[in-house]
Design a protein around this nucleic acid. Structure first.
Length: 507
RNA sequence: GCGGAAGUAGCUCAGCUGGUAGAGCGACAGCCUUCCAAGCUGUAGGUCGCGGGUUCGAACCUCGUCUUCCGCUCCA
């Protein structure tokens, strides 16, 4: 079987109406993609699988749908305003990238250290800053730079950063040169204006993650749905990040969709819930029939500021093992921060313990678009058949397939099309159906293979006599003769989302 | 953002030392066909990514720009 690379998947998506580059007639909008007719169906089915397994199947999880716009302070509290934007500078010779603020701070320290060594010889270390500066030229330089840097930092004057870097002859440690680019600030959050034009105070952000919509609604949800800890809040929604480098098709996009759930637990129990959700989520992935070797856990070595444990579920994409879903133990960081910034209590009264506390949070967060890519990477195959021919087939899990069943008259005469139409009318409740009478039957089978339709029903002359049809299965290409009255049951049970859910939830 | 490569039909790609575009597959319509991309006939679809320059003349040379891919970097 031929190896499928990302390029093949991109072509297939384009050719068969799964995914198009955004605004293609205007030469694309970078790292933004649109879902076409079959893509939208598949994406919706993935959402359905996730939502049902999380919300419908768990009594203690409820769903919400929070707005993309949020109060600007939200992002101060979450830490995104501060740590989502760094002033960066590149050395043109070594191509190394540095944080401009770090370069300057290091220089300040170096100058001061040098000065202190000098002062130590003169036994002047105990003196005040001013005295030190008077006695040592290096130390004085360090202090001057420090002041200039602080001033520039307060004013967010990045041009000044560069001037200082040049003035103080900071060199790249790799190339040793002073050939720097301008300092640029990359804020990963998109912003826009709310309300009247050009009022600076009304700058708001497009959310860079969906999670905060859940945290700020914690009490609303807990009280109105009368939830008792431990419980979860789930949601599916768009998030936006102005990635510096956004590439690899829909793997990293500027506008993307997350499916995430925040699970609120009693402090101290987070470890056990963390482990539980890891296993639950892995099972959800495995139920789709993916071979276990393509999935693995990956432990974060560097933890984000809010987490006390974090692991990813990685999938082996054609571009290698990459993050698909994150499971994070977020502690009480988010709720505590919002409590601090809003001045409102975000606590839960635990009647068993008879006390109030800020709950701890376990988050499961999966990229919907990544999930989509994972399904396609797993499903797209170029098979070589016994007769030497090849066929392109998408063996998508039937419950997720865009089209569930196609009905095909063997020839388009002798009343076969009419009979086929009659049959297809009875199958509407199974899911999306497809009717096709053009071209040879083999060609039509292959076309259905290419978009992942699990079943084809073929109507022939015998059908008119005894009401039986041929049912052809996508993966095995096997054909059986069955009664028309059986189609709905056979196809229906195979494509039924509930059967997939049963597998995901089975112990 | 840096370096490298590439942009020609829906997809995959030809296109010579400059002379205003082709193939295979696909799509659409019809004919023929009793079960795995068959055959026949016909049709549609491209200002060669975009913009300047050189030239009598540019898909081809040149400059710029955008987009995509690979590497670096980054990644809550």
């Amino acid at each position: 079987m031929a190896e499928i690379d990302l390029q093949k998947i991109v072509s297939h998506c384009k050719e068969y109406g799964f995914i198009f580059p955004s605004s293609e007639i205007y030469d694309n909008l970078g790292a933004v993609y649109d879902y076409g007719p079959f893509g939208a169906e598949l994406k919706n089915h993935i959402k359905e699988y996730w939502w049902k397994s999380m919300v419908q199947m768990n009594e203690n999880i409820v769903g919400i749908d929070a707005a993309i716009f949020m109060h600007p302070t939200t992002w101060k509290a979450s830490g995104h305003v501060d740590s989502f934007s760094d002033p960066l500078i590149d050395n043109k010779d070594s191509k190394k990238r540095y944080r401009a603020d770090v370069l300057l701070e290091e220089k300040i320290d170096k100058l001061k250290e040098k000065g202190e060594k000098e002062l130590a010889k003169k036994n002047l270390l105990q003196d005040s800053e001013e005295e030190k500066a008077k006695a040592s030229r290096d130390y004085a330089k360090g202090v001057t730079l420090e002041n200039a840097y602080k001033q520039a930092a307060e004013a967010s004057d990045f041009k000044r950063y560069k001037e200082l870097i040049e003035e103080y002859e900071i060199v790249c440690e790799v190339s040793g040169t002073k050939n720097w680019t301008d300092v640029r600030q990359f804020n990963l959050m998109f912003n826009t204006q709310l309300g009247s034009v050009s009022e600076e105070s009304n700058t708001i952000y497009l959310r860079p993650e969906t999670a905060q919509g859940i945290f700020v609604n914690f009490l609303n949800v807990q009280k109105t749905a009368r939830m008792k800890i431990p419980f979860g809040i789930a949601q599916i929604g768009k998030a936006f990040r102005n990635e510096i480098v956004a590439r690899q098709f829909i793997f990293r996009m500027r506008e993307f969709e997350q499916m995430e759930m925040q699970f609120f637990v009693r402090p101290g129990t987070q470890k056990e819930w963390f482990d539980k959700w890891k296993q639950t989520r892995l099972k959800w992935h495995l139920a789709l029939g993916t071979s276990p070797e393509k999935l693995r856990f990956h432990v974060h070595e560097k933890l984000a500021h809010y987490a006390d444990a974090a692991e990813d579920i990685q999938f082996r994409f054609p571009i290698g093992f990459k993050e698909l879903e994150g499971i994070h133990s977020r502690t009480d960081f988010d709720l505590s921060e919002h409590q601090k910034y809003s001045g409102k209590k975000l606590q839960y009264f635990d009647s068993e313990l008879n006390q109030n506390y800020v709950p701890f949070v376990i988050e499961t967060s999966i990229g919907l678009d990544r999930m989509f890519l994972r399904i396609l990477s797993d499903a797209l195959k170029e098979e070589t058949l016994e007769n030497g021919e090849t066929r392109t087939v998408l063996n998508i899990p039937p419950a997720l397939a865009p089209i569930k069943v196609a009905v095909l008259p063997l020839v388009k005469k002798d009343g076969l099309p009419e009979k086929a139409r009659e049959i297809i009318d009875t199958l509407k409740f199974v899911g999306r159906t497809f009717y096709e009478e053009k071209d040879s039957i083999g060609k039509r089978y292959r076309r259905m293979d290419a978009i992942g339709t699990p079943y084809c029903i073929t109507v022939d002359h015998q059908t008119l006599e005894d009401n039986t049809v041929t049912i052809r299965e996508r993966d095995t290409m096997q054909q059986d003769r069955i009664a028309i009255s059986e189609i709905e049951k056979i196809v229906g049970s195979k494509v039924d989302m509930n059967n997939l859910l049963r597998k995901a939830l089975a112990e």
